[in-house]
């Protein structure tokens, strides 16, 4: 479903601020794979996400999504294949537009936008049906502006919008990191439900080791622009967070994982 071959990305090349963000990344995701990604700050997680979504064009290498070579596609062209939820709950929705208008935008992903009405009664019924799944009572607030919703509600809506048209790839960019534990748990549950129901091929960046181990069928660890660990389901399901830390040290030849933001428990 997703094939990344020999991708390199360097920022500010040839200056004192040169930063190699991705080093020769090779990655293949089969349809239905749910891969969690961890790594310290500056490891290249965000750059990897952006390289897939089209935010950055890689210096070398190719990216293939659903058998289509998308390496040179713009972000808005790739959007027909990729759903994305950002860390910031404010980032995935338009605050001054109503819930139904936001969903109408999600509904028309990958379609040509013309002069048909964005929200029709037929679409409205579909929106209500899908909103009911979130269990937030949003199905009765279609005409509420999204800016009035709580952070958790907005993130739940973002997740629904990102997955509304079953994208080929779902990118989750630390999408629970900005929420309190209770709401984060709610979004985790919703994520599992949506991904499993639609068998979405998913790449999820997280700072929560527990999440990384418990969710998905494969775990990647990035460090300094390279994939240093690639743990399959069988191994992952038996690991604890301590095992994961030890595996990191081994992979780095004794260097300890120093990262304040990591949630170990």
């Amino acid at each position: 479903m997703l094939t990344i071959s020999n991708v390199n990305k360097t920022f500010n090349e040839g200056t004192v601020n040169e930063k190699i963000a991705l080093r020769n990344i090779n990655l293949h995701l089969a349809p239905g794979d749910f891969v969690t990604v961890i790594g310290s700050n500056g490891a290249g997680k965000s750059t990897l996400m952006n390289a897939i979504s089209g935010g950055y064009i890689p210096d070398t290498g190719t990216i293939k999504i659903a058998e289509q070579m998308v390496t040179k596609w713009n972000e808005h062209n790739r959007a027909s294949l990729i759903g994305r939820v950002f860390q910031d709950p404010m980032a995935g929705t338009a605050p001054n537009m109503t819930i139904e208008e936001n969903l109408a935008i999600a509904y028309s992903r990958g379609k040509k936008r013309r002069l048909g009405l964005g929200v029709t009664s037929k679409k409205r019924a579909l929106f209500q049906e899908r909103l009911r799944m979130l269990d937030q009572g949003l199905e009765n607030r279609l005409k509420t502006k999204v800016g009035f919703l709580s952070g958790g509600q907005r993130q739940a809506l973002s997740l629904l919008m990102a997955t509304f048209t079953n994208p080929k790839i779902l990118l989750l960019d630390e999408h629970t990191a900005a929420l309190d534990p209770k709401r984060a748990a709610l979004i985790v549950d919703l994520t599992l439900k949506v991904v499993n129901e639609n068998k979405l091929t998913t790449l999820m960046v997280t700072h929560n080791m527990e999440q990384a181990l418990n969710m998905g069928n494969r775990l990647l660890m990035l460090h300094d622009g390279s994939i240093i660990l690639d743990i399959p389901q069988e191994k992952k399901s038996q690991m604890t967070t301590n095992d994961l830390l030890r595996a990191f040290e081994e992979a780095r030849g004794g260097e300890k994982l120093t990262e304040d933001r990591y949630i170990l428990a």
Binding site: S53, E75, A79, F86, A91, T93, A94, I105, R113
Partner: peptide, 12 residues
């Protein structure tokens, strides 16, 4: 309202 969001849904 949110240009980053609308790009991620395929609008130029």
């Amino acid at each position: 309202d949110n240009s980053r969001m609308i790009r991620s849904f395929g609008a130029n």
